[in-house]
Design a protein around this nucleic acid. Structure first.
Length: 408
DNA sequence: TCTGGGGTCCTAGGACCC
DNA sequence: TCTGGGGTCCTAGGACCC
C-alpha cells in the first residue's frame, strides 16, 4: 500500500505571528529580521512584502531600499516557539506519527488512517481549518507517498495551499517546476548542472545514476537521481540528534583589536556552555569560526580526551585556537564558538580519568549557569564583558529586545 | 549593495591500526 | 627492497536548509 505523508508548513510564519499579535500590521509589508541600517538579513516577511521582491536571507539594507515604508521588526523567538508548540499540538491530534523538522514545518504519516479519518485531502482540509480557527495561522499542506515529494508539494501550493501528488503524477508534477525548486539543489549545484546543459528536471532525469555520480560525487549523484524521480533520497532522518551546538556573532563593524574579539569569545563560550547544561548534553570538541572582512571563513577545532566541564575551559580553548588562526591584524567580521561530538550527559563517562572531579566541576558550572540566567541583567558576568555595549546600555538583555515590540 | 545564526551532511586527506 | 587493503577517527572546507 502507498504511504500517505503530509508535509505542513506555516506560511510566512514569523511575519504572520506579528500580524496576528498586532492587527494594525495586517495587509502591510512586514519584514522580520533586523533593524534597517544594521548588518542583518530578512528572516521572514509577509506576502505584502514579497510583492516588493523581498525574500528571506536578503540583506536588510537591500530590503529597506526596496520598501522603505515597510514595518521592520526584530524576531521574538519565544513568541514564535509558543505559537509553534500550539500548532504542533493540534497536528499531534491527527496522528502520533508526527515529526517536527523546524519551528514551522512537520511531517505527518497518515498511512492506513483512511477508514478512521477519511480521505487524505479531506483530512488536510480539516487540519488547516482547525489550525486557522484555534491559532489564526494559515498553513500549506503537501500530500504524497514520501516525505521528499510531500515537501515539494506543500511548497508549490503556498500560501494557504493544499496540493496532493500521486505516484503517477510525480514526474509530470516535477517537470512543471524549476530545477531550483528541488529540495537540496542550491546555487552551486544549479551552476554545476547548467555547465552540463541540465536546466530542467526533465533533462536531469535522462541521466543515469552512474553518470550523475561521476559528475557530482557519489552522494550528490545518488541524491539527484532519486530526487528527479520523486523518490525519497532520504534527507529527513527519522530522528535528528544534536551533534553540535554553537553560537556566533557578527560585529556591527569589523574588528581587529584583540580585546573585542576576546570579549565576544567569552560571551559566546558562556552561551554555548549554558546550552549544553540546559539540554543535558556533554561534548569534547571545541570549534572556533572566523569570518574575515572579505567574507572568507575559517574554522579550527580541537578534540579533547575528556568532556568539557566549564565555559572557562571552552573559552581558553577558543583563545588558543584564535592564536593558531588569526594573524592579529586581519579585520574580523564574525566570530563563533561551538562544541561538537555532543552526546547526552547521561551517557557513561568511560573516558573520564577522574569521574568525581568531572562531576564536581560540572555541578559548579550548572550552578553558575543558573545564577547567570536568573540575574541576566546584573553584572554577575565577568568584568571584562562589562562596558561591551556602547551608549550606556546595560551589558545584556534589553538591547536585544528593544525593537521587538510590533507597535508601528 | 551587502551578505544572520543555527544546524546537517559530504568530501578529501592524513594518522593510525590490523 | 618494496609497499596492500580495509577500517576508523580527526580535521577543514563547502553546499545546503530554515
Amino acid at each position: 500500500m502507498d504511504r500517505v505523508i503530509f508535509h505542513v508548513d506555516l506560511d510566512a510564519f514569523y511575519a504572520s505571528v506579528e500580524q496576528l499579535d498586532n492587527p494594525a500590521l495586517k495587509g502591510r509589508p512586514v519584514i522580520v529580521g533586523a533593524r534597517p541600517g544594521t548588518r542583518g538579513v530578512v528572516s521572514a516577511c509577509s506576502y505584502e512584502a514579497r510583492r516588493y521582491g523581498i525574500h528571506s536571507a536578503m540583506p536588510i539594507t537591500q530590503a529597506h531600499r526596496r520598501c522603505p515604508h515597510g514595518v521592520y521588526l526584530i524576531p521574538r523567538m519565544e513568541r514564535y516557539v509558543e505559537m509553534s508548540e500550539r500548532v504542533m499540538a493540534i497536528l499531534a491530534d491527527f496522528t502520533p506519527a508526527l515529526q517536527q523538522i523546524s519551528i514551522d514545518e512537520a511531517f505527518l504519516d497518515l498511512t492506513g488512517t483512511r477508514r478512521l479519518l477519511g480521505a487524505p485531502r479531506e483530512v488536510a482540509g480539516r487540519l488547516k481549518a482547525r489550525v486557522r480557527e484555534e491559532t489564526g495561522l494559515a498553513l500549506s499542506v503537501g500530500i504524497a507517498a514520501n516525505k521528499y515529494l510531500a515537501k515539494i508539494a506543500s511548497d508549490s501550493g503556498k500560501p494557504d495551499g493544499l496540493v496532493q501528488v500521486s505516484g503517477e503524477q510525480a514526474a509530470d508534477f516535477l517537470d512543471g517546476l524549476p530545477l531550483a525548486k528541488l529540495w537540496g539543489v542550491g546555487e552551486k549545484t544549479l551552476e554545476r548542472l547548467a555547465e552540463l546543459n541540465i536546466t530542467t528536471v526533465h533533462e536531469l532525469r535522462s541521466f543515469s545514476e552512474d553518470i550523475l555520480c561521476s559528475m557530482m560525487g557519489e552522494a550528490g549523484g545518488r541524491f539527484l537521481y532519486r530526487a528527479a524521480r520523486g523518490q525519497d533520497p532520504g534527507i529527513f532522518p527519522a530522528e535528528a540528534k544534536s551533534r553540535s551546538i554553537s553560537s556566533e556573532v557578527t560585529f556591527e563593524t569589523d574588528r581587529k583589536d584583540e580585546g573585542s574579539i576576546r570579549r565576544a569569545l567569552l560571551d559566546l563560550s558562556q552561551q554555548v556552555m549554558a546550552r549544553l547544561i540546559r539540554g543535558r548534553w556533554q561534548a569534547n570538541t571545541v570549534t572556533l569560526k572566523l569570518r574575515y572582512w572579505d567574507f572568507s571563513n575559517t574554522t579550527v577545532q580541537k578534540t579533547m580526551k575528556h568532556w568539557l566541564t566549564s565555559s572557562d575551559e571552552i573559552y581558553r580553548m577558543a583563545i588558543e585556537l584564535l592564536g593558531e588562526r588569526w594573524d592579529g591584524s586581519t579585520p574580523v567580521r564574525l566570530v563563533g564558538v561551538g562544541t561538537a561530538n555532543v552526546v547526552s550527559a547521561d551517557e557513561p563517562r568511560q573516558r573520564e580519568l577522574f569521574p568525581d572531579e568531572y562531576d564536581k566541576k560540572r555541578k559548579v558550572e550548572e550552578a553558575v549557569t543558573r545564577l547567570r540566567e536568573k540575574m541576566a541583567d546584573l553584572p554577575l558576568t565577568r568584568a571584562s564583558l562589562l562596558g561591551k555595549r556602547r551608549g550606556g546600555q546595560p551589558p545584556r538583555g534589553p538591547a536585544k529586545d528593544g525593537g521587538a515590540s510590533p507597535t508601528p
